[in-house]
Design a binder for these strands. Structure first.
Lengths: 121, 121
DNA sequence: GTAAGACCTAACATTAATGTCAAGTTCAAG
DNA sequence: CTTGAACTTGACATTAATGTTAGGTCTTAC
């Protein structure tokens, strides 16, 4: 599939998809004319990349991480070495704290929303 | 307390604390010499602000939100109007999705970490 | 073959919180 | 009073993903 369709189906801008390629996150074949041609598996991968970005990982880390993931189509393909495991563990713990903070913030918002919906004075 | 102590006790840089003041997020008294003097309650507030930043709210939204929160010391002090409630509800839903994505990412990392810890081939 | 739409590269802009540095002032203790 | 640490304002830099624009090329349907 070409870049426009992939963008549409993932909700990620074409600009970002090209950026992902530049960062080594997302490979694409090229047509004879030089246009990108993505496999169907690219959809899942792009969504995964977005999630990892949302989790605060930087592209460089994601580049190292991706080959160690078992994706829907292929196998695990690579095992993380000790250094990477240490980094990923740190990220994992950070994400853990982040989830806790987000839950707190969600509660705060719910409180404010609830208070506004209940004109009990 | 002065800015250095607040920074130390919250883990937030002095630079950021001044920025918060500039954004109207965090008020401070001033000594006769012009130095900032924070009440103890500032600690909780700074932590709250950090959490909301982590949740992806922008300072402008936080400015509107803060007076509607019931903080440890004072009362709720203000009720969100309909427009703010709508915005906060959108934020809440976004945070909800974010938590889901983070949980997914955490699982992905755990998978990779586990796979690396189990040299079962 | 041609026209319209999709795509290409490259460059520059943006955002928003935070880092950093400089030059000057205040505070607290001796 | 002096001295050093802590503070002040202001300006400029950074980061990293993404937006935007421009000028050119490819694809496909007619």
């Amino acid at each position: 599939m070409r870049i426009g369709e992939l963008a549409r189906r993932t909700g990620v801008s074409e600009r970002s998809l090209r950026y992902y390629e530049q960062q080594g996150l997302l490979a694409a074949d090229r047509t004879s004319g030089g246009q990108r041609d993505y496999p169907d598996a690219a959809i899942d991968r792009v969504i995964r990349i977005q999630e990892l970005f949302a989790a605060g990982l930087h592209s460089r880390k994601i580049v190292e991480l991706l080959p160690c993931m078992r994706d829907a189509d292929g196998g695990p393909s690579m095992i993380a070495d000790a250094k990477l495991v240490a980094e990923l563990t740190a990220e994992r713990d950070r994400i853990d704290r982040m989830i806790g903070d987000l839950i707190t913030s969600r509660e705060v918002l719910d409180d404010v929303i609830t208070a506004a919906s209940q004109p009990v004075d």
